[in-house]
Design a protein around this nucleic acid. Structure first.
Lengths: 201, 201
DNA sequence: TAATTGAGCGTACGAGTGTACGCTCAATTG
DNA sequence: CAATTGAGCGTACACTCGTACGCTCAATTA
């Protein structure tokens, strides 16, 4: 009945990570989360935390990684959806808004730590968003934009979508549809503007 | 040589407010600022703080108000500038980027508390940004857009400008120009897109 | 089987927190 | 001039926090 040692360690590690994610909410940011709180929630002694992470910052980086992973999966999902037909913009916004509704805390941690107090976390979040942006940029390049115009367009779109996501976090459920529709309109402005001002050929 | 009592009280109040603002930085958010730290910096006893504010949240709301005021003054400045001629978009972006460079902490508190942990502060920041957006919306309505299209356009522009401001906070000085130029490009996309898709007449 | 390893625990410490309570003493009021 | 008011202070208390240290005891290794 004995459990392998490394297996057990991995279990505890996962327990810590999910304990941390579970505690994050609208009223509890990562910065306000203490090592002891995480330890309590994962049913380990405070000092045992150090067997897995050097400090809270290291845990934070892992959390951001998890969130980034979720974001990348989201992108893949959106891509699959609109490859089956339908408007790229509409599909992307719908997919993204679904995501923020189903995993508000994952989105929250990204959005909050983006302007957070720990520069390592800020950098990590910036990297994840950059990844997201570059992916979109590539798509625009294929459509015939030069790299700079494609990046500007992609960045603007990401800013708009994230802004809508943030707005929806505090909004009443019946406002979400309005927010989505507006984001779609805004993305269309960007797409149409970029096309008329900067599309080559 | 005696100083009026209410005068003295107001002085201390101002001291508390500036002490708080002075302590905020890239590494110190309002949430991580303690009552005792503020008291120390303002040269009063911790308990004297309560003679002026019910708790830190009340101070936070006042700080957001101050920042909102600064933001509104900024808008007026931009307006004056471009009424003297020149591109509205270019002037606005330049004015805004000047602001974030000269008062990084004021911008930081707004940007950070927007996704913060205290719902009252989040609401207060949202209100200030909303004010900013509506002001821009009015301008678009005058240009001939209907109210909804004008709001969508204004909101997108605010999201883009704030995004650029946030980016510039962590950027090297020589990157600021690139960020500004990109923001200008992005705003032009929105303006051109909105014009071609939604402009009446 | 005997020795080693290492995850997890309990204790303990110093530092920092918010705030209750009661005092002082100068400005204000009557 | 006497009484009242209230900003500011010091003390004190009951927390929470991160983490240093040394132990245990099951899984692993040799």
């Amino acid at each position: 009945m004995s459990v392998s040692r490394s297996q057990q360690k991995e279990n505890t590690r996962r327990a810590i990570i999910s304990a941390a994610l579970a505690q994050l909410s609208a009223d509890k940011s990562f910065a306000s989360l203490s090592l002891r709180e995480v330890a309590r929630e994962s049913n380990i002694a405070p000092t045992s935390f150090y067997r897995h992470f050097k400090d809270m910052e290291e845990l934070g980086l892992v959390l951001i990684d998890e969130c980034g992973l979720a974001l990348r999966q989201l992108m893949r999902k959106a891509r699959k959806r609109f490859e089956k037909g339908g408007s790229v913009i509409v599909t992307s916004v719908i997919t993204f808004m679904e995501f923020t509704e189903l995993n508000p805390n994952i989105f929250r941690i990204l959005f909050h730590e983006r302007s957070g107090t720990t520069s390592a976390l800020r950098a990590a979040v910036a990297r994840e968003i950059q990844y997201f942006t570059v992916e979109l940029q590539d798509y625009m390049v294929v459509k015939g934009f030069d790299t700079e115009a494609a990046y500007a367009q992609a960045e603007a779109m990401v800013a708009i979508v994230f802004n809508a996501g943030a707005e929806s976090l505090d909004a009443e459920p019946d406002q979400r549809e309005v927010i989505s529709q507006r984001a779609i309109t805004q993305l269309r402005y960007v797409a149409a503007g970029a096309k008329s001002l900067d599309l080559l050929v």
